[in-house]
Design a protein around this nucleic acid. Sequence first.
DNA 1: GTCTATAATCAGATAGAC
DNA 2: GTCTATCTGATTATAGAC
Lengths: 200, 200
Amino acid sequence: MAHVDNGRTRILDSAATALRQKGLAGAKLSEIAKGAGMLAPSIYHHFPSKDHLVEQVMMEGIYRNSRHIVARVEVLGPDAAPMVRLRAAIVAHIDFLLSGDDYSSAVARVFEDLPDEMRRRVLAAYSSFDNYWRDLIVAAQADGSASAALDATVVRKFLIAMLDSCSSWYRPGKLAPAQIAEQAADLLLHGFAGSRPGAM
Amino acid sequence: MAHVDNGRTRILDSAATALRQKGLAGAKLSEIAKGAGMLAPSIYHHFPSKDHLVEQVMMEGIYRNSRHIVARVEVLGPDAAPMVRLRAAIVAHIDFLLSGDDYSSAVARVFEDLPDEMRRRVLAAYSSFDNYWRDLIVAAQADGSASAALDATVVRKFLIAMLDSCSSWYRPGKLAPAQIAEQAADLLLHGFAGSRPGAM
DNA sequence: GTCTATAATCAGATAGAC
DNA sequence: GTCTATCTGATTATAGAC
């Protein structure tokens, strides 16, 4: 949405930033408009309501996030092992969130606060991406490289919640985003007590 | 807060429930009052503002959660191994969230949306509990039972985010809370790819 | 396509009776 | 300690000029 600079796109970008930083109720139309270089009523020339604007940001965030992760997994080719694909997805997810994409961070921040009907629609749009994660997890269990003692749904919920959290607490400093991504993958796949090559 | 049934306590209980279910902006004073068996203006006899009420719920949630977890860890005695203590804390945290305590779930739900100054105060109250987790993690690394290749702060942030998430997605059904707790501990400590006794 | 002015709504908060 | 009635302020949304 950043490749063209028309009014509609500037509003969406500004809304994504505001939603990420301040949440649904905290993102005022006046502030969103200011970020887009206009005043609040001008938004209504491009969107019929705040809800419609928010929903567009959600859909765009889901689309961007899923496109990025699927691309980073599928580039491995059809013969990549399930655990290699899962690890690539984990790393790609963190990389993308910490790359500063406001749309995907906005989804993680405000999803729970959406009005019921909108949340249902957003969830429906998210479902194919959710299934993609489920398939990665189930495939790793099916070929014996992952623990079959863990429930695939529980793993998926915990995994996504853990990854999504990083955009709320990460601050540039000691560790670079790529290092956070590696630590997340190591923690999720091998565990904090895990003894793997090179770890003590 | 549920052992006495005075007006103040009923309001706090109702506020915790509403905050957990609907978030900060979604929890209206009129609804909180209704849950306490009164009308909105009556709340002001017990609390000077909605913000004060919310802050009390946050403080109570932190207190309950930390008291429960510390008790479940310290009952192991002074000679328990660091990894045993850490696992007990993980299991206790999930158990408590899924036991239906609205106060601790409310904290996880609305913390990010709190006004800046209140969030600072709540964070300060949380810090000793946060340090408790940090000590559990560092102790496990220090005695060699946990990976020293992982950053202790990153592990703590990911771990707490993952555990906190369960109150938003768990629904009674196939798995009992105690089973979710065990799965969380296995996933965090041994990893999804981890091969431990009994796992495939 | 953006503006100024204003309406409409809603939720937090206050006043004062009982 | 709770109520009814009201006030205040903030925010979404509309009307209509430019």
